[in-house]
C-alpha cells in the first residue's frame, strides 16, 4: 500500500458500512463516550457498585466482539497463524471489554437517574 491517510481510511470505512451507517455509528460512539464522561462529572467520580456490575460485562463484551468478527468473516480460532493474529484477537477482545462496561455503566447510571 503506497499511503494510508486518514481520508483514505474514512473512505474505506464508509464503503464497508455505507456512509450513513458509518457516520451514525461514529456519532453514537461519541454520544456514549460524552454521556459517560458527563455521568462521571455529575457523580464526581465512578460509583463503585455500579462500576463493579459493569466490569462483569467486560469478558462478555470481549467474547462477543471476537465471535462477531469471526462469524462475519467465515473464520475461527483455529485460523490464528502468527503472533500478529493473536495480537489482533486480543485487541478485538480489548475493544469489546472496554465498550461493554462503559455502555453498561451508562445504562445503570441512566437507570439510577430516573429513580
Amino acid at each position: 500500500m503506497k499511503e494510508l491517510s486518514i481520508g483514505m481510511l474514512l473512505a474505506i470505512f464508509e464503503e464497508i458500512f455505507g456512509a450513513g451507517l458509518f457516520w451514525a455509528m461514529v456519532i453514537c460512539a461519541l454520544v456514549v463516550i460524552g454521556l459517560f464522561v458527563l455521568l462521571i462529572i455529575r457523580d464526581k467520580g465512578l460509583i463503585a457498585g455500579r462500576f463493579l456490575w459493569s466490569e462483569i460485562t467486560a469478558p462478555i463484551g470481549a467474547l462477543a466482539a471476537i465471535l462477531f468478527v469471526q462469524i462475519m468473516t467465515d473464520s475461527g480460532f483455529k485460523d490464528l497463524g502468527g503472533p500478529i493474529d493473536l495480537i489482533l484477537l486480543i485487541a478485538i477482545g480489548c475493544g469489546g471489554a472496554l465498550v461493554a462496561p462503559m455502555f453498561t455503566y451508562l445504562l445503570l447510571g441512566l437507570r439510577d437517574s430516573r429513580r
Binding site: 474505506i12 464497508i16 468478527v69 462475519m72 468473516t73 467465515d74 473464520s75 485460523d79 490464528l80 497463524g81 502468527g82 500478529i84 493474529d85 489482533l88 484477537l89
Partner: peptide, 13 residues
C-alpha cells in the same frame, strides 16, 4: 506466513 489478519483484509477491507 499464512495469517488470519491477511484473510480479514481479503474478506472485509
Amino acid at each position: 506466513e499464512e495469517l488470519w489478519i491477511s484473510w480479514l483484509m481479503k474478506e472485509v477491507a
